[in-house]
Design a protein around this nucleic acid. Sequence first.
DNA 1: TCTCATTGCTACATTTACTGTAGCAATACG
DNA 2: CGTATTGCTACAGTAAATGTAGCAATGAGA
Lengths: 111, 111
Amino acid sequence: MAKQAPATKPGVRGSRSGRPIMALLDLLGRRWTLRIVWELREGALTSRALRTACDEASPTILQTRLTELREAGFVELTDDGYGLTVLGRELFQTFTPLHRFAERWSKQEGS
Amino acid sequence: MAKQAPATKPGVRGSRSGRPIMALLDLLGRRWTLRIVWELREGALTSRALRTACDEASPTILQTRLTELREAGFVELTDDGYGLTVLGRELFQTFTPLHRFAERWSKQEGS
DNA sequence: TCTCATTGCTACATTTACTGTAGCAATACG
DNA sequence: CGTATTGCTACAGTAAATGTAGCAATGAGA
């Protein structure tokens, strides 16, 4: 079940082009992926706690996404539960501008 | 078919919490959404050109995503085709660190 | 005006992805 | 032993995405 070479695994759309950004956009563009990274931002969570944080999402898909994120090297399973790796935290850093953008977006939306 | 109040439209997962980032993560976490924004980064594309750029994705889903992105205020349809709005370009700006991250990610993956 | 090509967009049957519920084996605590 | 976690999986049902085809509207050319 443990795959290798995550960055270019065949099932990833856009990875045929060899452009890493495509593989990343594809991975992040799957349901719950962005959310999981977001919810783990402040520390590790157990699978159940993560599920609660993710609005009781189906454990099936959470497990699938966690496996993908682990294969990609963004998430790891420790004694404290699932947590972001160093790489995963770097990925989360790129969300910061996104967060600020979201705030601006929601405000200009009312008009 | 035309909805209103995009930031808090009922179908958006995570928006019940009222946190804009959740609505944004949900929108961006749908298939082809990230990719579309990415492909429009250098200028407007016609629907067919966008489809080609998106690896011949189904026009059905592209049209759905384009509608969502237009309702969100990120994309607009002009004489040149679909293009990013000012807001959409701001959103794309947040991808820049993601792009650089993707490059680093693909390199450390081989080990 | 009659093609012909392009645009944005949609129908629809098939396939894939996701959901919701239930429950497993392993571990730990009493 | 019971019971309460953990990570994880099975499976039936539902929702989402794909792939192919084609529509109406627009414009260019003969």
